[in-house]
Design a protein around this nucleic acid. Structure first.
Lengths: 333, 333
DNA sequence: CTTTGATGTGAAAGCGTTTTCACACTTGCG
DNA sequence: CGCAAGTGTGAAAACGCTTTCACATCAAAG
């Protein structure tokens, strides 16, 4: 009752040719006489032969599979990147092994190792923090690795991103231009490079450019959840802030709803601008103004870059920076 | 410069034992003298040997990889299931090959085939429609397949779901109990079994139980997008509906915001209840009442069921039904 | 005709494991 | 002391494919 598997050998026998020839027609090698090709193809069809990708992988040392490490699929931002990655991967006939890392360094290292054991041809890493241990593992890998929507302070790997510093600076400048003097900076954990090394830098730059002084009390470090944002309202008010830049959309939705629920008018009394321009920004009321990022494209371009790396094609630039924008909706004046 | 790979053979030579023995210690086979085991382990460590999963897969005919077919990772509902799937998979040492199908029958069949070519040990399918072609492919598979959060009218495969008919009936009854006589049924494509065979059935049941008559004009078939929902407002009003059951959260958010933007008070003048209880329900204002589903668990249980199937363990019930609930928030009275 | 350079094909050696089978050694027991 | 019943180990055969290399074959060129 166990389903029988048809091998390349069966096809060869039935078609009265060698395995090598069958392999050639399966792989589209042109060195096969049309008549032979036809004969083989017929047998393949008749026997319903399907090449075994595992055997293929072992023999050719290519698995046409790439590993993708994602903090959490449930997060709109990363899910959007993942979608871009998968589409391009499919276009180039690669499959994706997807694993959630929860931004947990230990798990990341472990996952990376199993991906390498599975002989993936390449890896795309998403995550806000590249620990030294992780960097070491990266170096050990013989499969190329590219970072998508994720920064590594040391730029040890190819990556595709937007210019976070400039984007945040522009967003904050916008708030300043509206007359806000006390602008809160709300972000996830500060030990993540993206927060302390990029976003905060942009924030400070905007302040400095406008001649405003930096105040610790306006920095709110929390985690990336709706609830956390919602709970921030009293603190925000106490600090006298009249606007906030927020590093994550779900968090921002929380901040905004927290304010609104406490009868603080957004944007009248308090302006909010967020970072990722996910669908979410359109669903909440007021709709949120946001830095816009080409989410899907970040993933797509990362994957495209990876395909080049896997084929040893020349790439002009290892670090690609995609354009960002600013979308004014109703959470700012 | 190409990184050298250490094979089981290298380890065997260095440790002065046979490959078989190395294989045994790597696989935790007890038939190895402790002294030998220790010796081998040391060499493994020294050489930094990592077993090649592809070779392993070929020899053992097990890849410890399962395929997951998902309509779109970007969809909160399915992403939540996927998260449950991945967690349990990881717990049982499986990896996930994830592919987006866009609910496109052709793509689904194709994807299924490449998964089978990759010799996955099992498959989890998510999608609202199991076409006959797909069902045929399922039958052809030697890897077990389970449906997660997805129905097949013919129950041809193991699956885990909630009782959609009862859930929808209860939700609609709730609306009826609030005095609504004209309740709209808003769903995605009606050719999907989940809509015409389950949700609609539940809707009709509730109507019938309450002695209300069914009216075609209150059925709104559209696609699962925010925009589509938003655009529905005029039609809803024209039909004289005073409440709606909606089959998808994003769609529901659209419906609700469309109403609100047209100055229809929700829930005062119009009640809305949705289906999936994703995070989204809490982000919009008013918060949406919803059928609650154990999203993560549906994925988790499906994966757990699959592990049993893959190990040929006995399973008492192929079709598992998880409990649902009703969460009253502010979009209903 | 011969020579030459494609062009088409097959034999066989891997790829890095697992697994079967046989065999040598220990034990414990009557 | 002899024997049955484990233990522990190694040789070698798969697993299903790709790829190298050598060898035919054949058409065109001399």
């Amino acid at each position: 009752m166990e389903k029988q598997t048809v091998t390349i050998y069966d096809v060869a026998r039935e078609a009265a040719v060698s395995m090598a020839t069958v392999s050639r027609v399966v792989n589209g090698n042109p060195n096969v006489k049309p008549a032979t090709r036809k004969k083989v193809l017929e047998v393949i069809d008749r026997l319903d032969y399907r090449p075994n990708a595992v055997a293929r992988g072992l023999a050719s040392k290519k698995t046409t599979t790439v590993g993708v490490i994602i903090p959490d699929v449930t997060n709109e931002y990363f899910a959007s990147l993942a979608r871009g990655i998968d589409d391009i991967a499919m276009m180039y006939k690669y499959n994706i092994i997807l694993t959630n890392s929860d931004e947990n360094g230990g798990k990341e290292v472990q996952v990376l190792n199993t991906l390498m054991a599975k002989q993936v041809d390449g890896i795309i890493f998403m995550g806000n923090q590249v620990t030294p241990e992780l960097r070491d593992e990266f170096k050990r890998s013989k499969a190329p690795i590219v970072l998508a929507g994720s920064v590594d302070a040391e730029k040890s790997q190819p990556s595709v991103n937007i210019d976070y510093v400039a984007a945040v600076a522009e967003a904050v400048k916008n708030l300043i231009d509206h007359g806000n003097q006390k602008i809160a900076f709300v972000s996830g954990p500060m030990d993540e490079a993206i927060n302390h090394d990029y976003r905060l830098k942009g924030y400070k730059k905007a302040l400095k450019d406008a001649g405003l002084s930096y105040d610790d009390k306006l920095i709110f470090e929390t985690d990336y959840t709706y609830k956390a944002g919602q709970a921030l309202e009293p603190a925000l008010m106490a600090a006298g802030a009249t606007a906030a830049f927020v590093g994550d959309d779900e968090l921002a939705a929380g901040v905004m709803n927290g304010l609104t629920d406490a009868n603080v008018d957004v944007p009248g009394e308090f302006e909010v601008i967020t970072s990722n321009d996910t669908k979410l920004t359109e669903l909440v009321r007021p709709k949120m103004s946001s830095i816009t990022q080409p989410l899907y494209d970040i993933g797509a371009v990362a994957m495209r870059l990876l395909t080049k790396l896997m084929n040893n094609e020349a790439v002009d630039e290892n670090t690609v920076i995609l354009p960002y924008g600013l979308m004014k909706r109703s959470s700012t004046k």
